[in-house]
Simulated assay, not measured.
Amino acid sequence: MLEGLPPNGATHVMRVDAPEREARSIADIIAESFDPAEVATSAFEIAVTAEDSPWAVEAYFGEEPDEDAIRELVALVSPDHAAAAVFSTLDKKDWVSASLEGLAPVAVGRFVVHGFHDRGIVGPHQIGIEIEAALAFGTGHHGTTKGCLAAIAAYGKKRRPARTLDVGTGTGVLAIAAGRLFHTPTVASDIDEVAVTTARANARANKAAPEIRFLHAPGLDAGAFGDMGPYDLIVANILLAPLKRIAKPLARLLAPGGTVVLSGLLPSHANAALAAYRAQGLRLVRRRTIEGWTTLELSRNADRPRR
């Protein structure tokens, strides 16, 4: 996944204030440079004066980080911000609330992804999904997650899938969104066992557990995927390399006339992912780019056989 899985008991934090574009870039480069089991990152807007609206980046480390190495990463985006980065130590009991501070709810279509502190803002016709940033990747604040939520919402305006598959579920936010919107069976998988445990707990907390079956599995070769398929809607929010690797087995799991949503892609990577899925008989329906990340929606004609 793109953002890290926050470590239990993380006590070391790096913070730097920067304009939105630089803040998002700094958060991404740190997240992509470390094992997600060891580092968590977030970029969020700071509520200040009307004349200025800066953002902040915070990175949480399970062990004391090499400050010079972190500054070198930040300098790839901005040398000035690298020099301004501040490192500190938090009490273990405080880091979770600190990671959530400043994270505003995210509204995409009918979905509102929020923390426990914003439960009251969900309207009567909206679907609230409560996800805490301290649990696993997928708080809804990343452009890849927003792109997938937008695709799920758009799909729901036209039809309801008999079955949905969420590959690389993270916190389970996309599976929960599908389960809450469609009320039909959903399968959610992840290579990370901790993510699966977290996602299952989130589904229970969001009253979506009856619709979702969670699988801890690398790739899509486990027999359970086929046993519960085919799927009318498949969402895979991962990265280019694994998206290309699973193109063939994923296409086999897709029902005739089904839709595939691919994300975790930089704009420069989108065509490579598209080529891999076109080779499996899928065609591009829509391309979204949100906050520097691209989401592809593809489909296969109803009369096209699975390979």
Rank of each mutant, 00 (worst) to 15 (best):
residue 171 T to S: 11
residue 100 L to I: 13
residue 165 L to M: 07
residue 295 T to F: 08
residue 201 A to K: 13
residue 305 P to F: 06
residue 121 I to N: 13
residue 49 T to K: 15
residue 247 A to K: 01
residue 40 A to H: 06
residue 107 A to D: 10
residue 300 R to S: 03
residue 136 A to C: 02
residue 58 E to P: 09
residue 82 A to Q: 03
residue 34 F to S: 01
residue 242 P to L: 06
residue 197 T to Y: 04
residue 152 I to T: 07
residue 263 S to N: 11
residue 246 I to A: 08
residue 13 V to C: 03
residue 40 A to C: 10
residue 22 E to S: 10
residue 184 T to P: 07
residue 114 H to T: 08
residue 191 I to G: 00
residue 66 D to R: 13
residue 86 V to E: 13
residue 142 H to E: 04
residue 118 D to N: 12
residue 118 D to F: 05
residue 150 A to N: 09
residue 297 E to R: 11
residue 116 F to R: 14
residue 194 V to P: 05
residue 143 G to W: 01
residue 145 T to I: 07
residue 173 V to H: 04
residue 52 D to G: 12
residue 266 L to A: 11
residue 31 A to G: 15
residue 61 F to I: 07
residue 44 F to E: 02
residue 196 V to L: 06
residue 137 F to S: 02
residue 220 L to Q: 03
residue 38 E to D: 13
residue 33 S to R: 01
residue 16 V to I: 04
residue 67 E to Y: 11
residue 20 E to N: 11
residue 98 A to G: 12
residue 193 E to Y: 07
residue 73 L to Y: 04
residue 76 L to F: 00
residue 48 V to W: 14
residue 209 A to I: 12
residue 160 R to Y: 11
residue 25 S to V: 10
residue 102 G to I: 09
residue 45 E to N: 12
residue 222 A to M: 05
residue 295 T to L: 02
residue 248 K to L: 12
residue 247 A to R: 06
residue 165 L to W: 04
residue 58 E to V: 09
residue 110 R to P: 15
residue 288 R to S: 11
residue 136 A to G: 03
residue 210 P to Y: 06
residue 12 H to E: 04
residue 298 L to K: 04
residue 159 R to P: 01
residue 305 P to Q: 11
residue 77 V to D: 06
residue 218 P to T: 05
residue 149 L to F: 00
residue 196 V to F: 07
residue 160 R to H: 12
residue 104 A to T: 13
residue 110 R to G: 11
residue 158 K to F: 14
residue 13 V to P: 07
residue 218 P to I: 03
residue 182 F to P: 00
residue 6 P to C: 04
residue 269 H to V: 08
residue 46 I to P: 09
residue 149 L to M: 07
residue 144 T to P: 04
residue 197 T to S: 10
residue 246 I to T: 00
residue 62 G to V: 04
residue 274 L to H: 09
residue 106 V to I: 15
residue 296 L to H: 07
residue 38 E to R: 06
residue 20 E to S: 02
residue 246 I to R: 04
residue 63 E to N: 10
residue 58 E to L: 11
residue 116 F to G: 15
residue 205 A to H: 09
residue 207 K to F: 14
residue 85 A to T: 00
residue 175 A to H: 03
residue 255 A to W: 06
residue 126 Q to D: 11
residue 287 R to H: 00
residue 153 A to C: 12
residue 253 L to S: 06
residue 84 A to H: 09
residue 14 M to P: 08
residue 186 T to H: 07
residue 20 E to L: 08
residue 74 V to D: 06
residue 280 Q to I: 05
residue 104 A to K: 14
residue 306 R to S: 15
residue 16 V to G: 03
residue 86 V to M: 09
residue 191 I to Q: 00
residue 268 S to H: 11
residue 162 A to P: 02
residue 44 F to S: 02
residue 291 E to R: 00
residue 24 R to T: 05
residue 20 E to T: 00
residue 138 G to Y: 01
residue 290 I to E: 13
residue 215 L to N: 05
residue 221 D to H: 12
residue 206 N to Q: 00
residue 155 Y to K: 10
residue 143 G to K: 04
residue 235 V to D: 08
residue 143 G to M: 01
residue 230 P to H: 09
residue 150 A to D: 06
residue 156 G to W: 01
residue 123 G to V: 10
residue 296 L to S: 01
residue 243 L to K: 00
residue 276 A to I: 03
residue 258 G to K: 09
residue 307 R to D: 15
residue 226 G to A: 15
residue 211 E to C: 14
